[in-house]
Write a protein that binds this DNA or RNA. Structure first.
Lengths: 108, 108
DNA sequence: ATCTTATTTCCATGAAAATCGAAACAGAGA
DNA sequence: TCTCTGTTTCGATTTTCATGGAAATAAGAT
């Protein structure tokens, strides 16, 4: 995982509509959801949804599988886990991440 | 942490330049870095850097503290930890994130 | 072959972002 | 006060994004 890749994945999640799409897929569980089902739940134009889904698929956060005419979408956890791992590593790289003080800025 | 807020934080990290800024601050440790020091390391115009920093400060991922004429910037870990927590929760909300079979070897 | 449903591509449009130079501003020191 | 250094705001430009209607495509079903 390099910085450019992480940035692309973060950016693809960094849009309210796409984050909602992703969360909806996560909540749908391992059965996934067809594009049409997503559209019903999220309530945006099919073309808009398709654009957003493409972004999520391109960055590997969502996978798709055809079943006859419908396309089943699923959240792809390994990608998310890798991203979380990258963020955690970056965060704790040098400094003590487990700073006790609640939200007070670390450092005496 | 709500969806809109998480999306804003993700978006603020989802730009290669800003992610580089953030990573540089993390690596700088608890001493932080002045804006000028960041500019040297990253090599962009001061005004551009200022815009990016504003985004990171607005979303709470970076804090600033004045010391005479220089502004010290620091990564603010509690915000990052909350974001990582949100992502992890969303990811594991309903579905078994530690799915054994599938294509992801998640966790043994 | 035709029809039907599901999804994507094409196209256009308004909004927002990224970038930077120049000018303004803030704060300490001579 | 004047000046110097560090940082931000202003103004402008180019690029990218979000959005959706209309047309095209995909893959059965009749």
């Amino acid at each position: 995982m390099n910085l450019e890749q992480a940035a692309r994945q973060l950016e693809s999640l960094g849009n309210p509509t796409r984050l909602r799409i992703y969360r909806t897929l996560v909540r749908a569980g391992h059965f996934g959801l067809p594009v049409g089902g997503l559209q019903e739940r999220i309530g945006i134009a099919a073309s808009t949804l398709s654009h957003h889904l493409k972004r999520l698929v391109d960055t590997g956060l969502v996978t798709q599988e055809r079943h006859a005419t419908t396309l089943i979408c699923r959240a792809h956890y390994p990608t998310m886990n890798a991203l979380i791992g990258y963020l955690a590593d970056e965060c704790c790289a040098d400094a003590g991440c487990a700073e006790p003080a609640a939200q007070a800025p670390a450092v005496p």
